[in-house]
Design a binder for these strands. Structure first.
Length: 480
RNA sequence: GGGAGCGUGGUCUAGCUUGGUAUGAUUCUGCGUUUGGGACGCAGAGAUCGCGUGUUCGAAUCACGCCGCUCCCA
């Protein structure tokens, strides 16, 4: 047993090392020559493309269109909204030179595009007939992460999409914010098999410059919460400084109501952490670059010819159904090696075809997520592969949901809060109206309010920090 | 912000205390035998030992400086 190749640590024993080894060895990413930056390899990019394509379909159906913005933003624009600027400034990369010459106005490598997009929106929008304006940008954002970098979770440049919409009134804008969060939740559940909890961010944790932020959160196996996507109601906070105005039906000039929202490749990080195991990646079928890997097994030239023919026939049939399938014909490797190799890469379904199977007109299915194997008739195989892939997705989602449920607990005092936190739980705990309590809890435990769910109101308990009457019961955890 | 560890063929690594031809495995290439849970034989390829300066007849090894990476804690 060559334990030294493959992942050398257990997920439960050294999570951080496990994560790094898994993303590198499965060939999703590699480190770039600059600290804090990573390179997406084809398998990693393929997963991102699946997420992108799923979101694009939904965006199109809801009337959003894609555009493209440049990477450089002049300082004068970025600093127009003061809170926003103060929030981002510490991690902005600045371009100050071209060649050896100094530039006039410093240029920021976009940490986010609100200021740039809204400068343009103010030009494009004149009348209520121009609204709603719904644009999405697939691009990257740059935020300097000097320490504590981790592939997909904390890097100085990351792939994401940022949507920006402009509306005539508050109600329509707020509906957009809610609709987008629901769209995100559906995508994450149906593509990545990740269960999430949705709700609002606290005042302290909301997006700088927003009126409020909606979020979806999930809990990672190391007990840290991961923010998987956010949707911001910007109110008129940006339309005023950026002059995003329109003439309404009575020809009265009004400031527009805006939203912005985004998900990033963090989703991929979350997916890896939640589903992976000691053997490496476990990919949900709908985003797996290869969904089905076929391993031919033979002992004689005669068998070889027969089995390769059957493998190819099955491959072709699966391809007709748009299943991403590949036959592993590498001759220098034994089946055992290939099994381990594809398991490390997380391929959801493996089909083994050998002489024993063919004698009975069967093949062997081996599932990655639960490592179960069984025989399948070749007759009607394509349909069974399709069903199996759906079932694998459902199983993975159900398993992850069960774990999230088990790890979500409720406490009523600070001691229990700290105990549960050490166990890596997502903790529901009552707090009062005073923002200082939230602040102190974060200082003392490093846990913060992750999400305030719709049913979080609670006026019958005592604040875990100061014992005053509570107002809400949000979910706390340490975060990524 | 604080701390710890590490940098030697593509990858992992020995050597460093006590300066003198850089160790082994894996990988890769070719040929042959193999193939139902990480096969084997033979032949071959691959390294300015992170960078710089110093000490020395001689530096992977000693000294100083720099750069980079990983992990832990706030």
């Amino acid at each position: 047993m060559g334990k030294e190749i493959g992942i050398t640590v257990k997920k439960t024993e050294d999570f951080s090392e496990w994560y790094t080894q898994t993303v590198i060895k499965s060939e999703l990413v590699d480190y770039a020559p600059v600290k804090g930056l990573i390179v997406l390899r084809p398998d990693g990019y393929s997963i991102w493309e699946s997420i992108k394509s799923s979101l694009d379909t939904k965006f199109a159906a809801t009337g959003h269109r894609n555009g493209f913005l440049p990477t450089l933003i002049p300082e004068s624009l970025l600093s127009k909204e003061k809170d926003h600027f103060a929030g981002f400034n510490p991690e902005v990369f600045w371009v100050t030179k071209s060649g050896d010459g100094d530039l006039g106005d410093r240029l920021a490598l976009r940490p986010t595009s609100e200021t740039l997009a809204y400068t343009l929106f103010s030009k494009w929008i004149r009348s209520w007939r121009d609204l709603p304006l719904k644009i999405n940008f697939w691009n990257t954002a740059l935020r300097a992460e000097i320490k504590a970098t981790k592939p997909f979770l904390r890097t100085s440049e990351f792939l994401w999409q940022e949507g920006h919409t402009v509306h005539m009134d508050k109600e329509e804008a707020e509906k957009e914010v809610t609709d987008i969060l629901a769209l995100y939740k559906k995508t994450v559940e149906e593509e990545l098999a990740i269960p999430v909890i949705t709700g609002k961010k606290s005042e302290k944790e909301k997006f700088v410059g927003a009126v409020y932020t909606l979020t979806m959160e999930s809990l990672m196996p190391d007990g840290k919460a991961l923010q998987m996507g956010t949707s911001h109601f910007l109110g008129q906070n940006f339309s005023k400084p950026f002059d995003v105005k329109f003439a309404d039906k009575e020809n009265i000039e009004s400031y527009a109501w805006q939203t912005s929202w985004g998900v990033s490749w963090r989703l991929i990080g979350g997916m890896i952490m939640i589903h992976g195991d000691d053997k490496g990646l476990v990919l949900p079928p709908r985003v797996a670059p290869i969904q089905v890997i076929i391993i031919p097994i033979y002992y004689s030239d005669e068998d070889k010819e027969k089995i390769q023919k059957v493998s190819q026939e099955i491959e072709e049939k699966l391809k007709i159904e748009k299943i991403r399938v590949q036959v592993d014909n590498r001759e220098q490797l034994t089946p055992g090696f290939k099994f381990n190799d594809w398991e490390m890469k997380g391929i959801p379904l493996r089909i083994e075809i050998g002489p024993k199977d063919l004698e009975q007109n069967k093949v062997t299915f081996a599932r990655r997520h639960n490592r179960q194997k069984d025989d399948q008739e070749i007759e009607g195989l394509v349909n069974r592969v399709l069903t199996e892939l759906d079932k694998i997705h459902d199983d993975m989602f159900a398993d992850a949901g069960k774990i999230l449920e088990e790890k979500t607990v409720e406490v009523s005092n600070y001691d229990d809060f700290k105990t549960e936190l050490e166990k890596g739980r997502l903790i529901k705990a009552p707090i009062c109206n005073n923002p200082e309590c939230e602040e102190k809890i974060k200082e003392e435990t490093s846990a913060d309010v992750r999400v305030i769910t719709d049913d979080a109101e609670d006026t019958n308990s005592k604040c875990i920090k100061c014992s005053d009457q509570s107002v809400i019961k949000p979910l706390f955890a340490r975060g990524y």
